[in-house]
């Protein structure tokens, strides 16, 4: 056994992370635990690395901005890598106004989760078939529907006019999207920026 007072790592040292990760077989784990019982320095190492491990594992997840997802959906659907000039330009500009979002009606109503679902009278809309809008809707799990026709009772609680596209985000499945009001608002802003 080496002298623990030196800076030379204990030969058991490298097994410590594997123990924390449950990656040692039973024999190895038992041998290491027996060693730890007798070596305070290695126990200390175990405790400290356990804290590091736990902190890394609890770092917050990242979602990316709605504007990014709207852009990347269009780029990937168009087979554009990030290095393509078009994609780079769009990323650099980072403005949703640069998105090609054609043939979408004049206004969009974003219905936040829990407010209203797909309108009964609304047939599924294809706001510019194959456009960014529809792709983004697919990706975000958004159901885009035409607003109900005038007089359709299903539209009573939503002030939408003819041609309005209702974007229902109640069924979004990008994690964080459906439950994060700020993300929803950012998405709404991004869409409206594109449209206006």
């Amino acid at each position: 056994m080496i002298d623990q007072t030196t800076s030379t790592p204990c030969p058991w040292d490298e097994l410590i992370s594997a123990l924390l990760d449950g990656e040692l077989d039973e024999t190895e784990a038992q041998a290491l635990e027996a060693h730890l019982a007798d070596h305070a320095e290695c126990r200390s190492e175990l405790d400290e690395l356990a804290r590091v491990r736990q902190r890394v594992r609890t770092l917050p997840m990242r979602s990316g901005t709605p504007a990014f997802w709207l852009r990347v959906v269009d780029d990937v659907a168009s087979d554009r890598p990030s290095s393509s000039p078009t994609a780079q330009d769009r990323a650099a500009v980072a403005s949703p106004a640069r998105l090609r979002w054609a043939s979408v009606a004049a206004s969009v109503v974003i219905l936040a989760a829990g407010i209203a679902g797909t309108r009964g009278g609304g047939a599924p809309a294809t706001p510019g078939s194959g456009t960014t809008a529809s792709r983004a809707a697919v990706i975000a799990g958004i159901t885009a529907t035409r607003a109900p026709a005038e007089g359709d009772s299903a539209g009573e609680d939503v002030n939408v006019g003819d041609g309005t596209v209702v974007v229902d985000v109640t069924s979004t499945t990008i994690p964080g999207l459906g439950s994060d009001p700020e993300w929803l608002q950012e998405l709404a802003d991004a869409i409206n920026d594109v449209l206006n």
Binding site: M61, S63, S82, G141
Partner: peptide, 24 residues
């Protein structure tokens, strides 16, 4: 993207360390 978008973005962000490279 729909089901694992956040997981993917998180892994990409941790690998690259910044949003620009994570997006690429």
């Amino acid at each position: 993207a729909r089901t694992h978008g956040r997981f993917l973005y998180t892994v990409a962000y941790r690998l690259t360390g910044n949003d620009d490279d994570a997006q690429d």
